[in-house]
Amino acid sequence: MRELTAKSFELRQIVLDMIMQSGGGHIGGDFSVMDILVTLYFKQMNISPENRDDPDRDMFVLSKGHSVEAYYAVLAAKGFFDTEKLVREFSAFGSKFIGHPNNKLPGIEMNSGSLGHGLPVCVGMALAGRMDKRGNRVYTVMGDGELAEGSVWEGFMAAGHYRLSNLCAVIDRNRLQISGGTEEVMSHENLADRIRSFNWNVINVNGNSIEELNKAFEEARLEKQKPTCIIAGTIKGFGGGEIMENKAVWHHKVPSQEEYETIRAELNRRREAALHE
């Protein structure tokens, strides 16, 4: 786990470089969601460049598509494409590395970007997997601001109705969205209870701990009657240090050169700390 934690900070540095190079991106959410993606891709999901067309592969949809920089960085680390090319071409004119997930790229199943689509799409994938008795698992990651989309709840409803235990939804619960705190913008009081009432298994974890996340995903596999939702409590901008963490302004802010150096140094420090823990 120590190596993976270190890797998560390395990948945040890639994200930082992508955003500096292109002059745009959603860095706050990238940093909060990174540990979730690293856990899924390096500990949980049966998906790799070699089996990407295998019908038995695990399926993933990044519903909060604006965290695409983190997603691309993880896919590159997983060998789906070249990291240098990614950093160079991200958001460039005509590039395939566009500012939201693009399934013309290897490893990406669905285009996303508009919020509230990932969960319902994954309900369809989970139904298909069950229909074909595949035994694979289906994962989606949503933002917490995204939960205001009605279509998310249509997805919760259908998955609970069909008892899709092969489906696992993760909420990147960083409690911030572009205009401010999620609870001020549109509150999610008793979120776990709300989701439980749709016939879901709900697990709360520290979403910036790969170890805790991994345990939660293991626990979700044991649930055979219901879909599982992991509410991953995260810090927006996690790893970026004091200047960045928990600040709504970093939703899609591009760092100045000075901020870049500070964030980079902080990521490096945490990477080292993780390795020598």
Binding site: V121, G124, M125, A126, L127
Partner: peptide
């Protein structure tokens, strides 16, 4: 959306 997921 479900249809699209199944089709995928």
């Amino acid at each position: 959306s479900l249809s699209a997921g199944m089709a995928k």
